[in-house]
Design a protein around this nucleic acid. Structure first.
Length: 251
DNA sequence: CGTTTTTGACCGGCGC
DNA sequence: GCGCCGGTCAAAAACG
């Protein structure tokens, strides 16, 4: 066999691989951009809501019976204001079903203070308090999902009064309920409800064979759509990623 | 030896 | 009032 020829074949294969990596990289970049813009929109909505609540004053329905409050600094009015605590938010974490520890890596340090077996789920529910900052009011409950044991359901209550450690990516929390808050987490997904969050780990976990061909926009859209569960968000995101993949000479 | 986890006891809310 | 249930406490054990 001609050594020179086989070298050329190898080089071609490597170049093809490189090209695929580049395109995948670009797809992820576009995804990140779209998510970042979505995050900005969500953050501004959260701010807007906080100020609206403040405007409603202490005679609002929130201030009536036993609602919990968090103090935040209003940069416009230059004073501390009280806002209602965020509603509990549910997140799904993909884990190894064989791994029985109810631990999810979400960038914060937690101290377990209890465990209970609940009626509706044979898996025990673990109770955690945030231990990163003294006086941080955040609590979370973690329980293996009854429907799919490869998922952990984490329910967060309250808002952190400090920054997370490390550099966890911000998740996009998109849901029909507009009052949900966003929490910094590296791995989030909800396979059972549409429109909750993105699971960014899937993009690296999916086998090459399952990945779409670069030439088919519709297949790419389908693929990206399968990565997200938010129909409204998915349409724009999938189209953007597909466009980037079909654009010649990217990167 | 200080910190974290485990686990049974305890408490409060709720429905009957 | 009683029992059930989810959430929390706190002493003991385990861990680094």
């Amino acid at each position: 066999m001609d050594a020179h020829f086989s070298c050329e074949v190898k080089a071609e294969a490597l170049q093809e691989k490189l090209e695929r990596s580049r395109k995948e990289n670009e797809a992820l970049r576009v995804m990140l951009e779209v998510m970042s813009s979505k995050l900005s929109v969500l953050q501004s909505r959260v701010q807007e809501k906080k100020f609206k609540v403040h405007e409603m004053g202490r005679n609002s329905p929130f201030s009536g019976s036993g609602a919990s409050y968090n103090e935040v600094y209003d940069p416009i009015k230059k004073q501390r204001i009280e806002i209602p605590m965020a509603k509990p938010s549910q997140f799904f974490f993909r884990t190894d079903p064989k791994d029985k520890s109810p631990i999810v890596k979400d960038g914060y340090q937690w101290r377990k203070y209890g465990q209970k077996v609940t009626k509706d789920n044979p898996a025990p529910r673990a109770y955690f308090r945030c231990s990163m900052a003294p006086g941080c009011p955040v609590k979370k409950k973690v329980q293996r999902c009854a429907e799919d044991k490869s998922f952990l359901v984490a329910t967060y209550e309250g808002e952190h009064n400090h920054d997370p450690n490390g550099s966890p990516g911000h998740i996009l929390y998109s849901s029909p309920e507009s009052s949900r808050s966003s929490i910094s987490c590296p791995v989030i997904s909800n396979p059972f409800e549409p429109g909750v969050a993105l699971d960014l780990t899937l993009s690296s976990a999916v086998d090459d064979k399952e990945k779409p061909s670069h030439n088919s926009n519709s297949k790419v859209e389908e693929y990206v759509a399968s990565l997200t569960k938010d129909p409204s968000f998915t349409v724009a995101l999938a189209a953007a990623v597909a466009r980037s993949l079909s654009t010649p000479g990217v990167l």
